[in-house]
Design a protein around this nucleic acid. Structure first.
Lengths: 203, 203, 203, 203
DNA sequence: TATGAATGAGTTTTCATTCAT
DNA sequence: TATGAATGAAAACTCATTCAT
């Protein structure tokens, strides 16, 4: 990456960061490009030198969140204990959703309304699947160790993700601030583990 | 309710029904009041005789969905078998979300943006809690019967709801049509039950 | 035409008239829709109830000019003297261009840039051809009477039109006000009828 | 002209040439300064080292066209036969307009909107008059030879120009490509030289 | 001299809502 | 009660031009 490209990417980051703050404080829809420009201390036109549209800023933010989360997962889930790995995953995923749900929801709406470039949908879709497969891998490991029930690991991975997401959606609905809700994470884990854990009734 | 009021309510229904069809075909944001009026075969101004705003139509729709769902639940979960009751609840809730998620999401957004009358937020909040408590009651019944694990029944009810919601959100994300996804319902039940079921390892 | 339609057409006229005044005083490009609305004493949004776009206002204006001019021609050129008919045509056409050239030029530019609905291009094209054929008819009559040279009457009609247009373009270029320039009309007639060659009738 | 000046002028030519190609392919309005810079393989800022504005590029192009055309005329119309000279003039002028009409029209619009430096308007006006006088001179020569009718030679020169321009405008209107239209040139000559009236020399 | 990053003015169009009839 | 004509706020995006390097 040339110096030019590095500088460019740096400014994209600056703009995107300002945008994220605004998007989370208000909402994607309520924030104007002028707002973003002002917050980033740029002129409005300058924003368009770095992003082709307001939508692209949102995509950039979301893609980064997902990519970073995926990276964290790979880094933090290297240990052999599948159970512990899932614990980490759940916490990470919970945090990711709690932080980003409003953004994800706006992105989702844009997608459903057909206002998103297919390549953006693809790119996010790919990461989503990678993550799913990664988690499925962990589960498969656990299954091999006889810790988890025998079932399609990919389906179980989906279930995990969906349970986490459901809980975070609820927080949004209740207008709870995005504070770490340890109790909920425990509840999630309890439900999930008692669910997918093999019942070692034999002894 | 006087005849006048009955007639009025009838027309509100007409309008709301037309609106729902449109909201689901496109989205709340993409449908104009004119669209609704045309579909309902009324003049645009007439809509405002029956609803104070476009938002109120959405609220009306959502409130009805929730109320009806609550009613169904009460009707269908009268039998003593807690397990079977939860099965019914899960199916109902799954259907409810699959049908109405887009509407709920728009409602959520409007709420977060502060564009909803507090009374609407309250009214929906109350139903939500009623339902939660109703489900908690079922669970408590199951606990009393020794079928479910011992844990705060309200928390377990929340968990149930959130798991279902998480699964339905995923369908939205994947742009799946709102078709009954039996496999997913089974997966949900499997996770939930194996999770909250008391492990009868004793025999 | 129903009363509604008549009223609607009347308001379209009001708006279009205001627009014409502004377009001629400044130019199509320099006039904003807000300007038109203000001049017509309407709100900006109201303009869009009567015209789908600023471009359509221009089209409306131009189509009316052309249609009216065609009508005038039919009415005024009923007499048998082909020569006199052409005189009338030339005067009419000269006036038409002197009044409308700026509008025509904007319309032309919009067309070349592909910003005009094909139906508009067609509609104006049809009138143009009708007029051309009408003039060709006059010329054919003159030819039958032995007054005009034998040549393709449609080509001669084109020539007539083009000569007039050329003269009016020059006035625009010289920023002359759209005053009736009798001398030029005479010059046009002289050229068209006789050319610049001396008729060497002597031998 | 110093070497510096020559180099400068050379680069102005490079830029202008690139601009012309683009202006003719699309239109003055649709071409951005960035387009011109890219085509000329310069940075955008560099363009402003050689031209004070986008408008000046257009002026430069038009002035050159006119000057070159004037030059050609002087060179090609040295022979004594006035008739032949006019033939040459007509062909040249026809070509000039066919090539440059879109540019001229944009220039005209900018002028009418008051966006052109007075000196540019003057400069082009002067060439236009020179040309007119030159053609008038030819006509006067023809009149002296008894070839052309007796009439103000300047007026006849105007007529010539206007006839040619009218024909070329029509081509634009019909969206015809700028191909040499020999038939039209012949038609123009026929009209100009002889008019449409049958010479009733017989009596 | 060459560059391109930064700028912000400027305009069309949509649409929820009001209100006179 | 029903209507739809009138309204105007609101926002994304483009592009000629400037200027620091």
């Amino acid at each position: 990456m040339s110096r030019k490209e590095i500088e460019r990417e740096f400014k994209r980051q600056l703009i995107a960061r300002s945008a994220r703050d605004l998007f989370l404080a208000k909402s994607y829809e309520e924030v104007t490009v002028q707002d973003i420009a002002s917050a980033a201390e740029f002129g409005k036109g300058t924003i368009y030198q770095y992003f082709s549209s307001k939508e692209e800023i949102l995509y950039y933010l979301i893609y980064q969140d997902m990519a970073e989360s995926m990276e964290n997962l790979r880094r933090d889930c290297s240990e052999p204990d599948a159970c512990e790995c899932l614990n980490i995953y759940i916490s990470n995923q919970y945090d990711l959703y709690m932080r980003g749900n409003r953004l994800f929801l706006s992105f989702l709406r844009l997608m459903l309304e057909g206002n998103l470039k297919p390549e953006w949908i693809n790119a996010t879709g790919i990461i989503r699947e990678q993550k799913l497969e990664f988690v499925a891998g962990i589960i498969a490991r656990g299954q091999a160790d006889g810790v988890f029930i025998e079932a399609d690991s990919l389906q179980l991975a989906r279930a995990l993700k969906n349970v986490v997401r459901g809980f975070t959606m609820e927080q949004l609905e209740l207008q709870k601030k995005a504070t770490k809700n340890t109790n909920d994470i425990e509840l999630i884990k309890a439900v999930i583990f008692a669910g997918i854990m093999r019942k070692n009734d034999s002894g």
